[in-house]
Amino acid sequence: MTVLLSIALAEIMPLRPVEAQLRPDRPTPGTPLTIEALTASSREDVAVNKNLALSRDGTLASVFLKIDLPSLTSFMVQDGITDINAPAAQAYLHQLYAALDALIAQAQQRIPGLIVTHRLDLIIGSVSLSAPVIHLDQLRWLPNVVEVINDRIERIETYRTPAFIGATTAWNRGGGSAFAGESVIFGVLNSGVWPEHPSFSDPDPLGKPYAPPPPAPGNSGGLRACNFGSTTLGDAPFTCHNKLMGSYRFMTAYDFFVGTEPDEFRSGHDDDEHGTHTASTAAGNRGVPASDGSRGFGIISGIAPRAYIVNYKVCGELGCFTTDSAAPCSR
Rank of each mutant, 00 (worst) to 15 (best):
G187I: 07
D57I: 09
P214Q: 07
V146I: 09
D204C: 08
V133Y: 05
F186G: 08
N227F: 05
M76I: 07
R286E: 15
P212G: 08
S42L: 13
G192S: 01
G259D: 05
W194V: 13
L52H: 04
S42V: 11
T161R: 08
V288N: 10
H277G: 15
V3M: 05
I309M: 07
F297P: 08
S71N: 12
W194N: 14
I35K: 07
S201N: 00
D271Q: 03
D137S: 14
F238T: 06
T232W: 03
G166N: 04
V145E: 14
L139T: 07
T323F: 07
P17I: 04
P217R: 10
H94G: 12
G319N: 00
A327K: 03
A131S: 11
S42Q: 04
A282K: 02
N242R: 06
I84H: 05
E273M: 11
L72R: 14
D324E: 15
P87R: 15
T158G: 09
R140M: 14
S41T: 08
V258W: 00
L72V: 12
P289H: 01
G175F: 13
H269G: 06
A89Y: 12
N219F: 09
P27A: 04
N51P: 00
S42A: 06
L244H: 01
L100E: 00
R23K: 10
F297N: 05
E182I: 13
Q108I: 10
G222H: 03
G176V: 14
V63S: 10
H241D: 09
A178Y: 06
P162E: 10
W171T: 04
T82C: 10
I12S: 11
S330F: 11
P143V: 02
V3L: 11
S42T: 14
T161I: 09
V188E: 04
P195V: 09
T252W: 00
L244Y: 01
P17W: 12
A102Q: 09
R224W: 10
T278S: 10
A40M: 11
T169N: 05
L4R: 05
R26F: 12
L5M: 13
Y248Q: 01
L129G: 09
A105W: 05
V127Q: 10
L22E: 13
F321Y: 05
K313D: 05
E36D: 14
A98F: 00
G298W: 02
A282D: 00
A20E: 15
Q21G: 10
E154V: 06
G125T: 06
A170H: 12
R249P: 04
N49V: 12
A163E: 15
P237F: 02
R173F: 15
P70C: 14
P213K: 04
T82D: 12
S230W: 03
S42R: 06
Q21Y: 11
A216H: 03
R160L: 13
L96V: 08
Q138C: 12
D68I: 05
P29Y: 09
C329F: 12
I115C: 13
